[in-house]
Design a binder for these strands. Sequence first.
DNA 1: AAACGAATTTTCGTATTGGAAAAAATGTCT
DNA 2: AGACATTTTTTCCAATACGAAAATTCGTTT
Lengths: 223, 223
Amino acid sequence: MSPNDAAPRKTAADMPDAQRAEFGRRLLDLRRDRGWTLSDLAERSGLAVSTISKAERGLISLTYDRMRQLAKGLGIDMAELLSAEGAAFQPGSFAVAPKGTFKRQETRNYVYEMLFPELRNKAMMPMLGTLKAHDLMDFDDFVRHPGQEFLMVLDGAVTVYAEGKAPVVLRQGDSAYFDSSRGHLYASAGAEDVRILVVCTDFEASELSGDAPVNGASESTPD
Amino acid sequence: MSPNDAAPRKTAADMPDAQRAEFGRRLLDLRRDRGWTLSDLAERSGLAVSTISKAERGLISLTYDRMRQLAKGLGIDMAELLSAEGAAFQPGSFAVAPKGTFKRQETRNYVYEMLFPELRNKAMMPMLGTLKAHDLMDFDDFVRHPGQEFLMVLDGAVTVYAEGKAPVVLRQGDSAYFDSSRGHLYASAGAEDVRILVVCTDFEASELSGDAPVNGASESTPD
DNA sequence: AAACGAATTTTCGTATTGGAAAAAATGTCT
DNA sequence: AGACATTTTTTCCAATACGAAAATTCGTTT
């Protein structure tokens, strides 16, 4: 392999801007919530003024050591510094989705009916799905995503394939719970369509960020 | 100020070794728990083998971007990557609960069927419940717990009371999603029993350990 | 013990972070 | 509006992160 063929180094510039920018905004908020200037935080944390400024604007990606210094200077722990990056789930939120109220979401193997798409930053992502009988699933690519997944069969029978395990058939009322970073795939197990409920955690917002219109409106009234 | 008086740049070498080393050990444990080589994790995360190796041994301080990549590759979120060694959901977990497989859990107002009680440290707590028709609910005490809650009506009609809101009636197939620290209560809305599925986040293990007295327990005990 | 493949560590060059100082922008007061 | 102080951003250079490849170590088989 000649030098020209070397894979380009993945640079910070290749990262999605949104995540770095969100962290920066959070850092800025934490500082301003305290009424501090960049100098104040610099003194308390031991970081340079310019470094903090650049981090707040998402221009640089801080190292672990620097983040520890910042957390200490802000009087918080690392989890808090990194938690709820961006907007948090709206306190007091209450939303209702009547049957048939969802946002359609297509993936390679499934069509999902996302519930409560208007609720930002949910810890859980509930969705309904129908698996057609005799659909050919693409077994070359198990689905994987960080977090955990709960499956309940509402109607029919589904075969659940989990990487490294024998397939298992679940029927109406049965459920499964698993680490969703493990490869997994669902398929109808019988002659009829299957109706399932899936609830996932830890979805990246960008994976579900489509702004398509909601099929019907659901009440969402924070008080 | 002469150049000799300039404050020396705080280098990574000046950081306490213990914290960086601790992070490195955690990263190593996370990888080994999965039975992965450095190459495996490198592939999944997009980081170089040598970078991961150096991070595990505390030789370098990873940037935020790189840590995000690692978390994604490991199938965990940032909080878990940075959390102190504590209880974690078992990587690769996969559990099936056939209909009727649950642990009974009684609270003041409800009797729940907890699903997957054997899975420790779940991000979600799925449970089924039956609300008896004509049950008298104790309206003096809304239920509250930190986190978020998803409700789906499997059969029948339920009235959902949320503090500060008008009651809303949900029927089979309807669902609700809300901040569970907001006071809430469910009651049968009709002449027949109601079957519901509830999935909660952020439960303290102690809240569901069954240690609480069945009747007479005060829901207003601060934690 | 030797051979071999796999896994990890080391090396070295490039890219990026990080800090100090200068420049620019912003805020306050008259 | 102008003067001045404060805050933030930009600039430039040194230090360190990072990746690819080479070297070393480790594990398995004969």
